[in-house]
């Protein structure tokens, strides 16, 4: 038995080494990670959220875009230390800075850049991703070609900044060089104790692609400043609208 165990250890060590090489040498931040993402982290190689990487988010309507923004803010709030600085780039940005505070990011630590042209948006995202002083760069684009995404990935491999690319209404879901592809849609919320009205923000989070990991889908709720899992059984059907006119 003794030699067998040793072999397993060797394999694990080698896997870790390969992983770190694939990340372009970026150090794994396992101890500090504490992203509070729980089961989602299981989906990633090494069970940790990849930081020095570009993540792709796709949304098709305004509701989904808002949900995606909410989820990105929630994850960003966990990834960024209190003093971290974030850059938010987008041509037609609608993000309301006040809402960032609810997701654990100080809105005054976010620099919004709104270049008028699409070409400049990508240039700005790339420049921001190269800047080591930043923790996170969020870019809102429509189309993203493989070559463009490759440039962004190369930029983060050197600077180890986390990049979130939010693609709104893309024409095709083409292959890109991002480490993961997320799709977040809003889920019917349920108020506490059967009260009427809206509950906490609830999303259906799909991790459609992830490099070296296991894709999956979850229902998450933003509650008391953390992401909570909603077991499948409690997800009730939408209640029927019963109010009468007058």
């Amino acid at each position: 038995m003794e030699p067998l165990l040793k072999k397993e250890d060797i394999v694990k060590a080698l896997q870790k080494e390969v992983l770190s090489m694939q990340r372009g040498g970026a150090v794994a931040l396992n101890d500090q990670s504490a992203t509070g993402l729980g089961a989602i982290e299981e989906a990633f190689p090494g069970k940790e959220f990849p930081r020095a990487a570009v993540h792709e988010f796709i949304s098709y309507d305004m509701g989904a875009a808002a949900a995606t923004n909410g989820f990105m803010m929630g994850v960003a709030g966990k990834l960024m230390p209190a003093s971290g600085v974030c850059v938010w780039v987008g041509a037609k940005r609608t993000v309301y800075p006040v809402a960032l505070a609810q997701f654990g990011i100080a809105p005054d630590k976010v620099i919004f850049i709104d270049p008028p042209r699409k070409k400049d948006v990508l240039w700005t995202i790339e420049e921001a991703l190269k800047c080591e002083a930043l923790q996170l760069v969020v870019g809102e684009v429509g189309e993203l070609s493989f070559m463009e995404s490759r440039r962004l990935q190369l930029a983060v491999e050197r600077s180890s900044v986390t990049g979130f690319i939010h693609r709104k209404n893309p024409r095709t879901e083409n292959t890109v060089a991002c480490v993961s592809r997320w799709k977040i849609t809003p889920e019917t919320s349920i108020a506490d104790d059967g009260m009427p009205g809206l509950g906490m923000p609830r999303w259906h989070v799909q991790l459609q692609k992830v490099r070296n990991g296991k894709p999956g889908s979850w229902v998450l709720e933003w509650r008391n400043g953390t992401l909570c899992y909603v077991p499948k059984t409690i997800i009730a059907l939408p209640e029927v609208h019963t109010r009468k006119t007058g």
Binding site: P107, V110, I111, T124, E127, C131
Partner: peptide, 17 residues
């Protein structure tokens, strides 16, 4: 970084709230 971006796309596009 801000200077580079401001030089390329214009300083009025960069905002902090």
């Amino acid at each position: 970084l801000i200077d580079r971006v401001a030089g390329k796309v214009g300083g009025d596009t960069i905002r902090r709230y």
